[in-house]
């Protein structure tokens, strides 16, 4: 048997990382299509405003009732028309959508796959850097000599992957993943094992 030299070991590490990246691609790919053609940038209030403002046919910066030609979006339009003057301004859109975004996204009871109290993995303040599921592990980041901007972009991407992973995995799996990552200071405590997010 041949001794695996330092260089080969490095190659193994590279290969493992490549596999991890591949797995993440598959995970992200497996998500249902989000209609990227429609100009969505992963949600948020601004993206929604832009999508709705596409209905501003006369480009006066307001959405009139007549412009709201898609009946499916009429209830939303109505909720936004706070002063009931039949026109929805960008400000009205912003304040209503912010309200609704806050109400469900950041609700304190952490419903969904996380289960009550079960935060998604690795997102607590000062929590441990994710191990498995890491797109480009730190040692590779160093090796690739990433620029500051690239590191920032990578961080954003990692955040998104983490969020999606948290949605895909059951609370039990998240716990398992967290344990295999090792618990860091400030990492969120594991949920009380809520039921998996089945149908």
């Amino acid at each position: 048997m041949k001794f695996i030299g330092l260089k080969s070991w490095w190659n193994v590490r590279l290969a493992v990382s490549a596999v991890i990246v591949g797995m993440i691609v598959v995970v992200v790919q497996a998500q249902p299509p989000r209609g990227d053609r429609e100009g969505r940038v992963g949600g948020g209030v601004d993206a929604a405003i832009n999508r709705l403002m596409a209905y501003d046919a006369d480009k006066d910066g307001k959405l009139s009732k007549a412009e709201m030609t898609d009946g499916r979006l009429f209830p939303l339009w109505q909720r936004c028309d706070a002063n009931h003057d039949g026109e929805v301004t960008r400000d009205e859109l912003t304040s209503q959508l912010r309200k609704e975004d806050n109400a469900s996204n950041h609700g304190g009871n952490g419903g969904g796959p996380g289960g009550p109290g079960g935060g998604p993995p690795g997102r607590g303040p000062g929590g441990p850097p994710p191990g498995f599921g890491q797109i480009v592990p730190p040692f590779l980041q160093d090796d690739l000599k990433l620029t500051e901007a690239q590191r920032t972009q990578l961080q954003d991407l990692q955040k998104e992957v983490n969020e999606r992973l948290a949605k895909i995995l059951t609370p039990e799996q998240q716990q398992q993943l967290q344990q295999s990552r090792g618990r860091g200071p400030g990492g969120p405590p594991g949920g009380p094992g809520g039921r998996p997010p089945r149908q």
């Binding site: 989000r34 949600g43 999508r51 709705l52 959508l97 996204n105 949605k167």
Partner: peptide, 10 residues
């Protein structure tokens, strides 16, 4: 998880 996990508000 499925509904609120839909990030796009529209």
């Amino acid at each position: 998880g499925v509904y609120a996990g839909t990030r796009d508000l529209v």
